[in-house]
Structure formats: structure tokens, C-alpha cells
Design a protein around this nucleic acid. Structure first.
Lengths: 340, 340
DNA sequence: CGGTGATCTGTGAACGTACACAGAGTAAGT
DNA sequence: ACTTACTCTGTGTACGTTCACAGATCACCG
């Protein structure tokens, strides 16, 4: 094997000590920002670090510190993942940003099959990560059980899994729905309806509750169309039902952007102009919002923020802090565009 | 600090040796599948491993082996990333799958600013990764230079960066464009145009070249609308221009699915039916394709495959194999749906 | 029967770091 | 002058693994 000039030996703490004329211990103290180092020694060491190009060896540090300096990022079902929920990519990015700021490494763990579940379970038990961020956990998830058993610092993003008391971060669907409905009402609309989706899930039910809150005494149950899913087709159907129930409707809150897109289609079909005749607002600020004609006013899901906060929560637990009970709810800015 | 029962000390190679009544060395040989160990000892050790729940300590192994067992996954510009190019998520997933199969860990490195560039450069020089996969490298990218200087095993996915001779994996835009255009012509269309995007990039220029190839003598420069980006809005504009230039157009090849979606909007606006009056095909097979009405016929980008192959290329280089010159081009199946 | 090779095993280094401890020096209070 | 406290520094050890080396045992052959 020829000596590769580009791959010369990395500088160690020893080289720095030699260069600065001090001992390993003192260098270690400077590197880890500990007290009890003379100003003189400190600057000499910092110069030496710069000169020899010293970067601490993670493996050696992890070995002696008994931790991995890594956080697992667990997601389920890669296939439907980026279609169903384009937010996951942003959650990942947000978490990664917070983690690398704290000098932690993110490790993506994808669960796609039974075999993957076992692999990840072993991985977690093996101490390869100091904590985990879990996205879209299922009910009765074996991974959740393992995390609980190991007492691994963790944060769940999205809907809290099962009933267990584990830290999670999400958004306040109810106040967000209330806020955008308020905003819609402020444009002078008087007959406002809602296309309510997924009422069997927290998110769906809460969005309807927020809508009800905002309307107060004006709330009319006849102006709520109930549809099963957050999808485009549901929006078309819901909007048709709403128009049939109340032809003079002048505002609609759709439970998601996809639903709103469907609603726009139905409105166009019925010859209504948007936002002239009817104001439409959605929820998610997904790619749909920008695809609609006119551009959709909606509630922004702070996906990157969710990842960031989840990471921070795990980091805080690692520092020994108690996780916040009941989870963390993020605020959701309203994005006002052209559809209302 | 109270002793946490869930966090008991991990079993080491020593515990296994004790349990099996042999020495560390022999256990190490079994774990690493090396020869020169008696069948008797092997089964005793395997039983002991199972019993004490031994998992090798990566940090210790990495320390002595002088490598990190990690591969960097470098991407630029997170913001526009998941909007402009939904494939990146799948590339990531594909690479991760191949890497974890080989027991390598993927480390996501996001470059979003000048500061990030420095951080990543330091990270690479620090020996934290044994190789890198780079997505969407820019021209004259400082990261590319550092990778070259360090002689770090690497694979670029997508467009080959600059002129340098570095291993890359991508798709053959030209033949793919040619293939789908051929297919469109085979449906009996006689006046076929193209909305050509991003002609300053290889991908854009190659797709136009492929279109020209397919048309041969039928090619009419007047039937090419040139737009700056691969986006929806560009599709709307391009289609309007095309219709103005040739009202009797009966086929369109859009340079991306987003552009095709925009084109569909403009066609609907002009009262043309799809695929009745005009056949439309796109490129990418992204989420857009399934959102369109009618469902879009398009060229499938094997995104996961790109990530997988890039990972395999890096792994092969780590094994000492020479990287393939000129890069690897993946085949791109055509997905025939309803829009043509 | 001695030599040679193959097979198997145990042991003593490393790898690069953090941490505990000991010790030296200084300053202030008794 | 003697404690006491505080600041600063160097050294030895441990973390869990791999690797090189040295033995041990055995079979085979001249």
C-alpha cells in the first residue's frame, strides 16, 4: 500500500500539547472550555490547535464518555412518506439543524418492514444513539415500547402516540383554525361554512372545534360538510354539498389545502368567482397552496420548527432536564394570499 | 444521580469471553468472521453473545480501525430543495438503504450558507466520514475542491459538477426525452411542441436535444417555448406562448411534471381537452404527476436507485476498487397514464 | 524422531480522549 | 509562620476494541 499524501495522520491532542509546550490535560481543558487554565496557556494552545489543524477525535471521545453523540431520527413508511406528508423532509431538516448546532449527529432510521423494526430495535438497545426523534409513530408501536423500556430520551413529532406520557411536539390545530376563520370573517363574510375532514383524528376534530369557536353565535351546523379525508376529491364533494345547502355562502374554511383545491374546482364548476363571490382558506401551507388558482390563503405548518423543537427537547432531556408535560405546541402563522 | 435500571452497563467483548471461557482475541475473531477458530469455540461464543446480549461498541472499533464507518450525504439549499426537487428525499432514502445494509451510517450534511460550507469543510477534513455522496453540487463548489484534495471516496448524484473527473451517477436526459417524445408521436400526433426549461443546465439542454432527436426532420424551432425554470408558472406561460404560435398543436412535451401541470392549466383556460385535443407528457414522475387531472404520462426518475448506486459506488471505492470512469447512467422507465 | 507447516489460542500493545488525583504555586486570613 | 482556599498543571488510568505476535497443539513427511 502506497502512502497516500492526502490521507496523512490526523493531529491528536498530544501533538497540540507538544506544540504548545503543555500537557494533554491542559489542552483537553481548553478544548472543552473548562476553567482553571491560565490566559497564557490558553492562547498558546489555541495557536497550536490552529497550526497543527487539530480536530477532536469523536470515536475516542465517545469511547471514554460512554455515549454516541448521536440522535436517531425514526420514520415509518418511506414510500407514502414524501407523497402523503411533504412536511417530513422539512422536519428532518429542522431537527438536523438544531442537532448539528449542538454538535450532535443525526442518524436516519427508516422503518419499512418487520425486519426493519427488529434492526432498529437492536440498534436502539445497542446504545448507538443517546436519544431519538420519532416521526409518525403508530398505535401500539413496538419501537415506542422499546424506547420506554430503555428510558431513552425521546420526542415524538405529530400526534401523540397512544395514551402514554411521552414528550411530543405538535401544533395547536384548534387555535390555528380559530385564527384563520377569524381572519376570514374579518374580510366581511357573513355566511361562512367549513369542509371538515378526518373527524376521527385529533387534528380533524380540533380544526372543526376552532372553526366553531371563531363563529360563536353565528355558527350554523348546516354549514359544515363532513368528509372522510384530507384529500382533493373530498374537497370537491364537500363544496358541492355546501353550495347545495346554502347557495349564498360567501366563505369556506377547508380542513386542508388539498381539500381547498378541490373546493376551488367545485366553485369554478358552479360559476362562483374566488375571492370575489366566495373567500376560501385552507390548512397546511403545502405545495397545493401555491398550485391553486388563485393562490391559497392558509395556515402555515411550521414543519422545520417541529423538527427543531423535537431535537431541542431531546437535547434538554440529555442535559437532565425534565421533559415538558403535555407536550409542546407551536404557533402557526397565517399566510394570507389571494383566495380570501 | 440515581442508578437508572434501564441503562445498565452494556456487555463488552470481555463479558462474552468470560461467559464462553475463551479470550478476547477469539471472540473478536468470531465477531469479525475470521478463520482460525475451532467449531467448538465458535458455537460457545455465539451462545455467549446471545446470552449476554453483546453488541460491538462502534466507538472503540472506530478508534482502533482509524475510520468512522460513516458516509456523508451532502445537499445544498434545503429551502428550495423539497419544493423544486422532490426527488432528493428519495435519493436520501435509497442511499440510506444501501449504506445501512453495508453497516455504514449516513450523516446528513446540509449546506445552507457560507458558514455551513466552512463547517462541512472542517467536518470532512476532520475524518468524520469515510466517504461522501453529494447531491446537486454547484459549479466551482468549494466542497468539491476539498473532496478532491482529501482524496475522499465520493459519488455525485445528478449533473456532473464542472469538468473534473469525479465519479457520478445520473440519468440520460437526452435518450429519456427522446423516448417519451417517440412514444407521444406514436399516438398519432403530428404537430408536437416542447416547453423547454433550464437550458443553462445540462438536464434542460439534454431534454431539448432528445426532443429534437425524436422529431428529426419534423422538428420546427417555432414549436419550442423557452422558459427559465422547471416550475408550474413557467408551464403556464410556455403553454400560452405555444398556443399563440400554433393553435393547431396536438402534442406537448413539458420539461418537467410541474411545467406540465402548468401547461394543463393553460390548456384548460384555452378550452382544449387533454388528451382529446392535445396530448401532454412530462418528466420526473414526481408528486405532480399524480395530482394532475388527467394523470400525467411522464418519465420516471429512479431517484431511490440514484441514491443506492451512489452509495454503492462510494462503498466500492472504500473497498479499493477504481471508480467507473464517465459515471453511471440509470435507465428511466416511461410511465404511461392518461394525459397522452 | 526431529523438523515444518497449518491451525488454533491467549496476551500485550496500541488507538485518542476524559477524568480523577496529586502536587505546585499563590494569596489571604488567623 | 501556619493554615486554608483557590488556581493551575501534569500524570496515570480507563474506555472497548483490533492487530501483531508468541506459544501451543497437531499432523504430516523425510
Amino acid at each position: 500500500m502506497v502512502t497516500n499524501p492526502g490521507r496523512r495522520r490526523r493531529a491528536t491532542i498530544h501533538d497540540v500539547a507538544l506544540e504548545a509546550g503543555v500537557s494533554r490535560g491542559t489542552v483537553s481543558r481548553v478544548v472543552n472550555d473548562e476553567p482553571y487554565v491560565s490566559a497564557e496557556a490558553r492562547i498558546a494552545i489555541e495557536a497550536a490547535i490552529e497550526k497543527v489543524g487539530y480536530v477532536p477525535n469523536t470515536a475516542a471521545r465517545n469511547l471514554v464518555m460512554q455515549r454516541s453523540q448521536a440522535i436517531g431520527f425514526i420514520v415509518h413508511e418511506p414510500h407514502s412518506l414524501f407523497l402523503e406528508d411533504p412536511n417530513i423532509g422539512e422536519i428532518l431538516l429542522g431537527a438536523n439543524a438544531a442537532l448539528s448546532l449542538a454538535d450532535f449527529q443525526m442518524v436516519c432510521l427508516i422503518i419499512d418492514s418487520e425486519r426493519d423494526t427488529d434492526r432498529v430495535a437492536r440498534y436502539l438497545s445497542g446504545g448507538f444513539v443517546d436519544g431519538v426523534i420519532v416521526v409518525s409513530a403508530r398505535k401500539n408501536d413496538p419501537i415506542t415500547r422499546i424506547i420506554e423500556k430503555l428510558g431513552l430520551p425521546s420526542a415524538f413529532v405529530g400526534h401523540p402516540p397512544d395514551l402514554r406520557q411521552l414528550p411530543f411536539v405538535g401544533i395547536d390545530n384548534r387555535s390555528s383554525a380559530r385564527a384563520i376563520t377569524d381572519r376570514l370573517l374579518a374580510t366581511g363574510r357573513t355566511r361562512v361554512g367549513m369542509i371538515a375532514s378526518a373527524l376521527d383524528r385529533d387534528s380533524g376534530a380540533d380544526r372543526l372545534a376552532g372553526f366553531t369557536d371563531a363563529l360563536g353565535p353565528l355558527f350554523d351546523p348546516a354549514l359544515v360538510a363532513r368528509v372522510p379525508f384530507y384529500a382533493y376529491a373530498d374537497g370537491v364533494k364537500g363544496m358541492r354539498a355546501l353550495l347545495a345547502a346554502e347557495p349564498h355562502l360567501d366563505g369556506v374554511f377547508a380542513a386542508s389545502d388539498a381539500v381547498a383545491a378541490g373546493a376551488l374546482e367545485a366553485l369554478r364548476e358552479a360559476g362562483r368567482s374566488v375571492p370575489g363571490d366566495v373567500g376560501v382558506v385552507g390548512f397546511d401551507d403545502s405545495a397545493w397552496a401555491l398550485r391553486c388558482q388563485p393562490l391559497l390563503s392558509t395556515v402555515h405548518q411550521p414543519a422545520a420548527g417541529l423538527g427543531e423543537r423535537a431535537a431541542e427537547s431531546v437535547l434538554a432531556q440529555l442535559r437532565g432536564e425534565e421533559p415538558e408535560l403535555g407536550g409542546i405546541l407551536l404557533t402557526t402563522p397565517i399566510v394570507w394570499r389571494d383566495s380570501a
